[in-house]
Design a binder for these strands. Structure first.
Length: 152
DNA sequence: GCCAACGTTGGC
DNA sequence: GCCAACGTTGGC
């Protein structure tokens, strides 16, 4: 079992949007970065635990916890010219982009802000800080436990 | 809005 | 393959 952090802009799709889905479940789509894609396609498995991270917003930070309920499959949006995630270089036989399905485990009672994570010396080596632009970030179990212990 | 840190594209 | 130009992410 693995630990991850998935980023989403709350103005586009935040944790409250996930909470109001049927079964509090959704397709995690729109990943269009190869490194993030490779994680989704090759490394994310059913049962993996995922932090839902709100990015590019007033207070960026961790909003809650999700669990992977379906492993990677081809993102149907890449084949649909009407869809914003359409990719003309992708085909059904040779897809470029993948998605997974996730469900909400729980929303934090309070957002855990990035500023608080940054104050923790034991988290200083996190890939989240080293590589700011990655939308699917792996976490070690130690980092996962540390982050959860900071929740109020 | 600014800017750093990437990633992508396209000419050569 | 190199590199400049451009685009995107994301914190501040």
């Amino acid at each position: 079992m693995n630990y991850w952090l998935f980023k989403s802009e709350p103005d586009v799709y935040g944790i409250d949007a996930l909470a109001s889905e049927p079964n509090q479940q959704c397709r995690w789509d729109g990943v269009r970065n190869y490194q993030a894609r490779n994680h989704l396609r090759d490394d994310v498995i059913v049962g993996d635990q995922v932090l839902f991270y709100h990015s590019s917003c007033g207070t960026p930070g961790v909003a809650g916890i999700m669990e992977v309920v379906k492993a990677a499959y081809s993102d149907p949006a890449q084949l649909d010219p009407e869809n914003g995630y359409y990719d003309p270089k992708a085909t059904a036989d040779n897809p470029r982009w993948y998605v997974v399905d996730v469900k909400l485990v729980r929303k934090f009672s309070r957002l855990l802000p990035l500023s608080k994570l940054k104050k923790q010396p034991s988290l200083a080596g996190m890939q989240l800080f080293k590589q700011g632009r990655l939308s699917v970030v792996p976490l070690t179990k130690t980092e996962w436990l540390m982050i959860l212990s900071l929740e109020e």
